[in-house]
Amino acid sequence: MVLSDGRFPSGAHAYSSGMEQSIAWHDVTGLASLEEFVAGRVATTGAMAAQVAAAASTLMTAATAPQQTIGLDALDSAVDARMASAASRAASRQQGHSWLRGARAVWPAELASASPLLMDRHAWVTLGAATAILGIDPQDAACLALHDLVSTLVWSAVRLLGLDPFEAAGILAGTLAGVETETRALAAEAVPATEALCLGRVETEWISWLAAPLSDLGAEAHAARAERLFAS
């Protein structure tokens, strides 16, 4: 609960995960288009986020130390390969860095020894691996990743468009409830699929390749803008 609290100091409040640019392009103009946009990102980025978080989580509990390194490196590369926008890749690594800083400060004893392994990784990789050390299972790690993605989109839209926050919270709750079964199923499938990684074999083809090309273009356009409020 502490980790999924929007007030956890992980830098998340300054990220919009593409929402600022989608609003600039008039793709998102209000609650209805926000809900559609969120559904699209959940079905694409969300699937990858859930699988990667669950796989990273599995690695930390089922693999030996050398294989954890190989596995997390492989997951990191898999995310690189699935994020077409360099700006998105940089934002994801920055978020992983800031998130780990927060988690290490709050749980220094638990995370101290694994910290070098978790440094400079994509956010979903860091999140899955660190939460496993804190006793959170792969399915809950995947749900946390989805919660993070959807709340980033929803709350940045509230700030930028002045949406009714109650309606927006309704979209957040409704989306997460609607996708929970699917997210848990993706995570459950990720556990056996990670077996090869746990043995040091780099097999990541099974991770979803679904992407949102307009969001990738948007991320590049956003990064080139001077007058932006959000880091992504």
Binding site: R7, P9, S10, G11, H13, A14, Q94, S98, R101, G102
Partner: peptide, 11 residues
């Protein structure tokens, strides 16, 4: 950014 969630400033 300067008070409640100082992560980006710390970076």
């Amino acid at each position: 950014a300067i008070r409640d969630d100082i992560a980006a400033n710390l970076d």
